[in-house]
Write a protein that binds this DNA or RNA. Structure first.
Lengths: 102, 102
DNA sequence: TATATATATGAACATATATTCATATTATAA
DNA sequence: TTATAATATGAATATATGTTCATATATATA
């Protein structure tokens, strides 16, 4: 892979990269994604587990969904969310490990 | 390394991880760190290269320095900043590559 | 000493963001 | 149909953030 650090970053790249890291810059979203390391979960289950407002969870999930970091499937009245970006989840996992062991 | 995703993240870890990603969530800071991939640079040089206000660059560098993502050395009137966290710089590099090639 | 240069700092401001509240939407069950 | 449950949505609000401006600090040079 060519070294590209000598070039100015174009706006599209800057926006995409910054948005992705913004998703990971909020404790609530980190907690939600951390839960989704393991398994798919419903909105209510996430809200209960993390002791968060249902509306808050829904808003954050929309944010993550727009960035395609999570996906969902409906089963009756319940909507199950799960992770949808291996690369980002791996980065998050690594960073949590890094922070935990220091 | 044990799988820790079943545990709740403690506040300290949450704060550290979110702060680190917050550093990478702003286009200006990404551009600055991207410049520092290659070499150490003075505040003015960074400001000129990126066409940014000197004060703005100084504020952002302080932010990055507080998180120990950059370090500095003084040479006369000039202060040279350089990267100081391989792990974070690697994550940034990977994410830029990832975004560029999609 | 006085002047110039490089950088840092704090206040001010406009914008962005996270959260809550009230309510709408969607699907199921009675 | 009506009632209930799960989720989504939009407005409101308080706080956080990025940037600029004016100025302070630190160093070098005349």
């Amino acid at each position: 892979m060519a070294d590209e650090s000598q070039y100015e970053l174009d706006e599209e790249t800057l926006f995409l990269v910054s948005q992705t890291f913004k998703a990971l810059s909020d404790p609530t979203r980190i907690r939600i994604l951390h839960l989704l390391f393991e398994e798919e979960l419903s909105v209510n289950k996430i809200a209960e587990t993390l002791d968060l407002n249902q509306s808050n969870v829904s808003h954050q999930l929309r944010f993550l969904k727009n960035l395609r970091l999570v996906k969902y499937r409906r089963d009756g009245k319940t909507i199950y969310y799960s992770q949808d970006d291996e690369h980002v989840m791996k980065i998050l996992q690594q960073s949590i490990d890094h922070a935990t062991h220091h």
